[in-house]
Amino acid sequence: MGTAQRVSRMMPFPAGAGMARALVERNVRAYKHAWTTLVSGFFEPVFYLFSLGVGMGALIGDIDAGNGRMVAYASFVAPALMAAAAMNGAVMDSTFNLFFKLKYAKLYDSVLATPLGPRDVAVGEISWALIRGGLYSTVFLLVAAVAGVVESWWAVLALPAAVLIGFAFAAVGMAATTFMRSWQDFEYINLTILPMFLFSATFFPLSAYPAALQWVVQATPLYHGAAMIRALMLGDVGASLLVHVIYLLVMGMIGAVFAARRIERLLLT
């Protein structure tokens, strides 16, 4: 039994045949014809790293990473960029790309006529978003390590951490997409993602926010993603990591089950 099959079996409702893998394979084939769109995703976070982290960082100098420990600004901001990249990649795949397949390409109409069920569609598409996000994260981590902004060997765990962030956002993004009526509705996604990208203790530490806002910041999923990867890349490993992991895991699980049910409601009428 493959991993996709096992993951698929674990999810409650609705029906699936444990064949999500076939859909991932389909996406791999489709991207072989459009590999440039795949490659462009590598560059954005790397450009940010050099312009903001290394370039601006030279002006900013060292900053307090949280518990009084001073680190170079590039080392502070790189983990957040990695987390944000995982978020952006997952959201792109599970919103824009998924909406196209759902509404225009009618891909799932043909998929659901085969043994695959709505659960396979949800698991397959989320898995694909994770594979793609995992590739980007690996490249980013390597570049960050070469640029000297990774402070600890714990950073190896930043890879699965980035995949977890991808899972949480892909699942919720997919569920949200099933409610989209037209491309205009995607403005809501941008309106959610952009402030989160800027204000989740990504570019400046939590202590820089007014006390009243700190709670809001700490409630956002990207805050947990960024804090998790930052702890790993700086080697500040502690129990708080567990909170981040659980937050994102629960978010992803709920999103995935909800997305599968919505796909069932939408397509199996």
């Binding site: 064949m19 489709a30 009618k106 043909s110 695959l116």
Partner: peptide, 25 residues
């Protein structure tokens, strides 16, 4: 064979059959 063709436009003619066959395991 549904009323409206639901071919996979991101794939070639042959791949449409290959990929569809894989959906059947």
């Amino acid at each position: 064979v549904p009323q409206r063709d639901t071919l996979d436009e991101e794939l070639t003619v042959r791949e449409n059959i290959l990929v569809y066959g894989r959906y059947f395991g």
